[in-house]
Design a protein around this nucleic acid. Structure first.
Length: 660
DNA sequence: GTAGGGTTAG
């Protein structure tokens, strides 16, 4: 206790030191202090260390201007000083000033500073300077190589990044896990204009396996995401299942993978599985929520989406702009433009970005509110947000569905002339669709012939669709000559061509195409529909004997068909290409997944509530006319979202006006 | 010894 009191007496710091240090130490200290005093007055080194420190502090405080003014007065800037300056540099002129100073210092080829300089130039989007630093660094550490890879990737020079990766391999550079992350991402960045992406991805994957980096969590997650982006869902799944350690990012990437690759149901299941682990490290973040919202949108699962919205508010994730944008898009895609618009309205107008606006524009376009879509586009421009390539895809799509040919042409022209957006393949596809739907087939073909890009299957598909509508055999054959080569496994193209021949009364040709289709025994994409009833999502496929209520559903459908026939419904068996008896064809029509979902909704849903169905294919003509009549007969509003757009059935009429 | 990576809405 006695010592305690004595220690409680405040002792000045300097004295206390004396108290504890031996006299010898004290002497040494004094001596050293004396020496440094001599240096500080006579040698420049002491001033130097002083300036170095000052420059570093100024950089940390963000006062780069003053730091740069001080730099010439420092004859021996240290590596630390340069590092601080590089980190603080935020303009091209300050960047080159610092770079010059480095070159004239003993650190001119220091790999550490080279790494930082490359990153700095990359940040300022000065790629050629970054390349220069790279080439002038004789002994490149893996950091230097990786910084250059990253810089190339960030500047859309992914092809160069991949060549650099090859060079590293040839030179026997010891690659690390970062190298693989960048190489994999480059591969994806190249995939837009190169068909070899899957092959190259697998090559890099095997190289990663050989070096044992494939199990590294960052590499594996990137790998998973790369397979996802190329549409190789099963490879992504394999990577996910083989990982021994999965982080939140890994789970999020896999959820996003399902959501983007037409498996929204699996995305929701995986999300549920993740939440059930109750692992605190796996608490969903904004990105996770965005991916889950994407899945809800994919299913038009409005109830699930609302639950998520509640979660977002509780977790205060509504402060994140991208979460709000995803909400807007989820609500609209789930059929509620009102709720979508409400989220948009609650956003501070100054915070709204191009994605916020685009969500709204594409939402209106999807619902067939084309005037509104164009109006929102104008509002976007007025608000000072520049339209992006995506804005134009939506708004041109809107024009096309509305038959606004002249308006569409003007907007297409304005892209380059007014908004500085270079048209890409999707925009040309929109134009072909616009002209094709309006019956201007010659002009549509002219666009294809004159465009500077390689026509995509979607673009030929648009032309083929127009040919079907206007019965143009010549252009249909032209489109198919490309389509059969570009996507030989898409049975839809054969069906459309057969339709064109049927319309043109060319039965031999119809038979030829049908045979072609049968010979290849192509796997037809199974029709699938979803419906949400009391916040649970139910899915239906056309051959679904597993559904416990199938008998009840069948019975209702038979009853409905009988009633609809009185109201003028005639089963449109033309949509079935197989050679079957009329009765059998009608039976097949009744098993279309959309009709099953509709009957299920009528049986189990809340009376009088809007029925919302989502379908993975385009709505067939028979289901369309059937649903129109059901909406009238049952006095129910029915929303059906197919792959392209919304159909709102009410009182026997559809919002698409039978034009889809 | 320092530096650097994976998931994000249209």
């Amino acid at each position: 206790m006695a010592t305690g009191t004595s220690l409680a007496v405040p002792v000045p710091v300097a004295e206390r030191r004396f108290f504890f240090l031996s006299s010898q130490h004290g002497h040494e200290r004094k001596h050293r202090r004396k020496r440094s005093k001599v240096f500080s007055s006579s040698s420049s080194e002491a001033i130097a260390s002083d300036h170095n420190h000052q420059i570093q502090v100024l950089c940390k405080q963000g006062n780069l201007a003053l730091a740069l003014q001080l730099l010439p007065h420092e004859p021996n800037p240290t590596q630390r000083t340069f590092h601080s300056l590089i980190l603080a540099s935020n303009t091209p002129s300050s960047a080159s000033a610092i770079h010059r100073a480095v070159i004239h210092s003993p650190f001119h080829s220091d790999p550490f500073l080279s790494t930082c300089l490359i990153a700095m130039y990359s940040r300022l989007r000065l790629l050629s300077q970054a390349r220069q630093v790279f080439h002038n660094t004789p002994s490149k550490t893996i950091f230097v190589w990786n910084a250059m890879l990253k810089a190339l990737l960030a500047d859309d020079e992914a092809e160069d990044a991949l060549s650099l990766f090859c060079q590293m391999n040839c030179l026997g550079v010891h690659l690390d896990s970062y190298t693989f992350s960048f190489a994999l991402k480059s591969c994806i960045a190249c995939s837009a204009d190169s068909s070899s992406a899957p092959y190259r991805l697998k090559q890099i994957h095997s190289a990663a396996i050989r070096r044992g980096y494939d199990s590294q969590v960052h590499v594996a997650t990137t790998l998973l995401d790369c397979y996802s982006k190329l549409g190789f869902l099963s490879y992504a799944q394999q990577v996910f299942h083989h990982m021994s350690l999965r982080t939140l990012v890994t789970w999020t990437a896999m959820i996003g993978c399902y959501a983007r690759n037409e498996q929204p149901y699996d995305a929701l299941n995986l999300f549920r599985q993740m939440v059930l682990t109750q692992d605190p490290h796996l608490t969903p973040n904004a990105v996770t929520i965005i991916s889950v919202l994407l899945a809800c949108a994919g299913l038009a699962a409005l109830g699930q989406g609302k639950i998520l919205h509640g979660y977002i508010l509780r977790r205060e994730l509504d402060s994140v702009l991208s979460v709000n944008n995803a909400l807007v898009s989820m609500y609209i895609k789930s059929g509620s433009t009102v709720l979508g618009h409400r989220v948009f309205d609650h956003l501070d107008p100054r915070r709204r970005d191009a994605v916020s606006w685009n969500s709204l524009i594409s939402g209106y376009a999807m619902h067939g509110f084309y005037q509104e879509a164009i109006q929102v586009f104008d509002e976007m421009v007025q608000s000072g947000v520049s339209p992006t390539a995506v804005s134009f895809v939506s708004v041109l799509g809107a024009c096309s569905h509305c038959g606004l040919v002249e308006e569409g042409k003007m907007i297409f022209q304005s892209m380059t002339h007014k908004y500085n957006v270079v048209p890409c393949i999707e925009h040309y596809a929109c134009m072909v669709d616009l002209l094709g739907r309006a019956g201007q087939l010659d002009e549509a073909v002219k666009i294809i012939e004159e465009m500077p890009l390689e026509p995509s299957p979607q673009l030929w598909g648009s032309l083929l669709g127009a040919c079907r509508k206007f019965g143009n055999v010549e252009y249909a054959e032209l489109a198919c000559s490309h389509l059969f080569e570009l996507e030989p496994k898409n049975s839809g193209n054969y069906v459309l061509l057969a339709d064109v021949y049927t319309k043109a009364q060319m039965p031999e040709e119809v038979d030829r195409v049908k045979k072609l289709l049968e010979e290849q025994s192509l796997p037809k994409l199974a029709g699938c529909s979803w419906i949400e009833v009391f916040k649970k999502v139910y899915s239906f496929v056309s051959v679904d004997e597993m559904n416990p209520q199938i008998e009840e559903i069948d019975a209702l459908l038979v009853e409905l068909v009988a009633a609809m026939k009185i109201h003028g419904y005639e089963p449109n068996t033309k949509v079935i290409l197989y050679d079957l008896e009329q009765e059998e064809k009608e039976r097949m029509l009744l098993r279309h997944s959309e009709k099953l979902a509709l009957a299920f909704g009528l049986i189990n849903g809340k009376k009088g509530e809007v029925i919302r169905i989502t379908k993975n294919l385009r709505l067939c003509e028979d289901c369309h006319s059937f649903t129109k009549l059901v909406s009238k007969f049952t006095k129910r509003d029915i929303f059906v979202r197919d792959v392209n757009r919304f159909h709102h059935f009410k009182d026997g009429v559809c919002s698409c006006m039978d034009y889809w």
